[in-house]
Amino acid sequence: MAFAKVQLDMEEKKAERQGFLSWVKLRPYAMIFPAIFIFCLFFIYPIGYMIYLSFHDWNFVSPVKDFVGTSNFSYLLSDRDFREVISNSFIYTFFTVFLTISLSLLLALWLNRGGTVYSFMQASIFSPHIISLVSVSMLWMWIMDADYGLLNWFLNLIGMESVMWLTSPEYALTSLILVAVWKGIGFNTLVFIAGLQSIPKDLYEAAELDHTPPWRRFLKITVPMLSPTLFFLTIIGVINSFQVFETINLMTAGGPINSTNTFVYYIYQYGFQFFKIGYASAAGVILLVILSVLTVVYFKVLSKRVHYR
């Protein structure tokens, strides 16, 4: 990088002699401008606007936006539905991430082998990952259909009662978590496998020479060496799960009785169905704060313990 700078210095001298505002000096800005412009337009400015709106009362059409202070927030926090949204979101996120990661770690340890069979299996469990959430949702709605669904047929076959997968408040959230795990497990497994394969073999060989038992090898070599992968998958999983929308919108519409309502869906409802832009924005701000805090805390607390190579 030192070099690029020198190159610039030299070109710059020339430009200065020519008496122009130096193109060499402006060039980097010109190169990043399109991207930065888009970011400002579609990320930075909207965030500011959302924060602004969260302190106002507005219904989309009225020409005035009334400043209401923090009353949107106090309304939300006293709203039973919203508290449910928060708890649903946390439950959904926790179980989705926990189950996906622990199951994929097991699968990775199992499937991390050569041969056609295993690479075929890896491709199979990965395939849901590239399928549209629309298709995944519809497929599972059909499979989880209480009357004609494959899942209940199978339960009945092995002598169990039918379950109201998507239509009962007790099961609906669990069903959504199952679908999320099913969709996400392949990607996580493959990332773990990549992580496993990048662990130098000689570490295991050295451990074997020391007569380290397999479970200790797993705890002392595999887990620490996988920790960056684990770290990455967890943070991605948390951010993605907190903004789940598609499956909820298509499969349960937040119901039954609010039991599967989560953040983004709640914002969507308040914004586009009830036209309460202030509330919706305040909910968005709260989600933004939660995600930021989680990310920062996660990085602060855990990154110290992650073993980077």
């Binding site: 970011f39 990320f43 909207p46 959302m50 832009i277 924005s281 968005g284 989600l287 933004l288 995600l291």
Partner: peptide, 17 residues
């Protein structure tokens, strides 16, 4: 920062814009 912010989170203000 834009990498960490999912667009799904700010769809409402973007919609208004």
């Amino acid at each position: 920062i834009c990498l960490m912010i999912p667009s799904q989170l700010i769809f409402l203000p973007v919609y208004l814009n």
